[in-house]
Design a protein around this nucleic acid. Structure first.
Lengths: 355, 355
DNA sequence: ATGAAAGCGCTAACAT
DNA sequence: ATGTTAGCGCTTTCAT
């Protein structure tokens, strides 16, 4: 029966038009909320829409318009709280403006990142929120530039000559971590990180070092950086502590510049039977829900996800709507949550300490 | 200059066609890999494509075809490892088949879930992977049914009369947890969960209870279920322990049926100064990276994310390609990781125990 | 083997 | 205020 078939094929704007006894153009106007439609006709259209269950096909609609109401989001991964929250926020903000967010994970690969970007370009997305794997100088940003895409760079970036950037204020947060640690009389601190994330790591490291040295010129800061991946870092860290054990020198605190580093540090402490904060203190950049329920609770730098997402979208939509002007570089303030994993050295005897 | 403008507007199939001296139809065939094109012409097209940097617009392409090569994925949240991994997997699998995954978070709201579904229907997605907030009987699945959408239900589902389902084998995993706990001589166990996730919670609870009672008929199993949200559960749990303290009765182990419950339990233990496993044992459904680096490491049921994602996509594409037949209901086996948070009661004196 | 023509579902000029 | 026309970029008969 014709009725049943109509159920299968979705009603198009023409179905509505003929049912309402007007043209497709008028239906289009009603759907778009254009005021110049005779109220009576508008009502007929609305009735037909209601009856048929008609909904505009956003893709067909975009096809005709200039730009598509789609925002692309590219994150290095989806598995962590930080990027999960970020995607969730971005989705919500895009939706509020009538855009759809299409998110993709580069899985920490710059090659994939570029591929995804190319695909998003194929989709003719209106704009892109890119959280690059490495930094703002990677091939993905170059691709965006070369193809005149509009976009915003977030997280592992500082500033760029072509795109607006939004990221956590790593340097200030790290300075505060330094203040806290120095204030608690730590004078030998190990900082661990991933060299790949050059800009960010540098900001965090420099921010930390500058403040620590200013407050305590005699402080010793060791640095263990792995280039690309977490596993090498684990090995390097093990090696570092092995050497330290022999020489009788061991840092009293560790500052991890990224989340996985915090996990690696914890697991290395476990292996050695060290407990926080008695044997060693620990602070990590990037907070997670579990950090406040473990024993000890893990001190962490909380990144302002909502602010980053919010300002990124704000900047992006401004550009989409044609705003000119040099790219801006925003830094959003973090919160440092000092929890039980940080103590003062010497307050409690180190178990198994040879000094 | 004309050249610069050409940079702005992406080359269309017609640009390629005229440069190659053939028609758009021929270009289309070459791009689609149709064999009936004279090799010489095909080469000219390829050269033009190369020169112009032409890429097919997938949306325009889908516009003309019947179905769009887009898969929708709806998850209750993006913030947890489980769903993060799930989206990542699904994206990868969709991509392998030349589809794009559009993921959205229902943020644990059934209302939003249905809205998202409607939007995906507007997009005319080829199929949907839905991880419902509650279970397979929610309004979202009903919407899918009513609109003849093709889809697969995952995670918080058992089976459905209209859609294929894929989920973790909660019952078997819970039975194994029961075996472990009973084997370690626990005879008073608290199970906590969220009532909302009816089917899953029931499967986990029943699987646990049946096996526990079979192995130890004298076992006492208390159950604390909050209906909708995590905070009420926290309150109920606190209340439960308060009552227990007075009566001198306290479970020796807690089995949390979902991840946030595990966090709530841990934080409640903290508040009371109880340590695992000496004061109480803990196992949680759902594993997370941090659980193996904390002290104690937290025992957990590991859900087979890859298998769930893999079989979900398999089933979905089979349906998309027209496979008929009654809906299937898959259960994927879990792994139970017994870690340090589980011990035997009485082995070590309970600190602060009044018994 | 190839191209002309006809749309997919929609919107934006332009007439009326 | 409304309808007609002309596409967006692509694919697909259907002639040739």
């Amino acid at each position: 029966m014709a009725h049943r078939q109509a159920q299968q094929r979705r009603p198009s704007i023409h179905d509505v038009a003929s049912r309402a006894g007007v043209s497709a153009a008028t239906v289009s106007k009603v759907m778009a909320g254009v005021a110049t439609v005779k109220p009576e006709n508008a009502q007929r259209v609305l009735d037909a829409v209601e009856h048929l269950g008609y909904r505009v096909d956003p893709l067909a609609s975009d096809m005709r318009r200039a730009k598509r109401r789609i925002i692309g989001a590219i994150m290095p991964e989806f598995e962590s709280e930080f990027f999960g929250q970020m995607v969730s926020q971005l989705e919500s903000l895009a939706e509020q403006r009538g855009y759809t967010l299409v998110a993709a994970s580069s899985r920490e690969s710059e090659a994939r990142e570029k591929e995804i970007l190319a695909r998003m370009h194929d989709w003719r997305v209106a704009g892109v929120v890119l959280a690059p794997v490495r930094n703002e100088h990677g091939p993905a940003a170059a691709f965006m530039k070369a193809n005149g895409m509009t976009g915003v760079l977030i997280d592992r970036v500082l500033s760029d000559d072509a795109f607006d950037t939004v990221s956590a204020d790593s340097a200030s947060a790290s300075a505060e971590v330094a203040r806290e640690l120095i204030g608690k009389r730590h004078r030998h601190i190990l900082v661990i990180g991933l060299g790949e994330q050059a800009a960010t790591v540098r900001a965090r490291l420099d921010g930390f070092r500058a403040t620590a040295l200013k407050l305590a010129p005699d402080v010793r800061i060791d640095v263990v950086l792995a280039e690309t991946d977490v596993e090498p870092l684990r090995a390097q860290l093990r090696d570092y502590f092995d050497r330290g054990e022999g020489g009788g020198e061991r840092p009293t605190a560790v500052y991890s510049l990224f989340l996985k580093g915090t996990l690696v540090a914890l697991s290395e402490f476990r292996r050695r039977g060290w407990h926080c904060p008695n044997d060693i203190s620990l602070v990590g950049f990037d907070d997670a829900e579990w950090m406040q329920v473990t024993w000890p609770a893990i001190a962490a730098v909380v990144q302002p996800v909502r602010q980053i997402a919010g300002h990124a979208m704000e900047a992006l939509f401004a550009r989409i709507e044609g705003e000119e002007g040099p790219p801006t570089a925003r830094l959003e303030p973090c919160k440092v949550l000092m929890r039980e994993s940080v103590g003062s050295p010497g307050n409690v005897p180190h178990s198994g300490d040879r000094q």
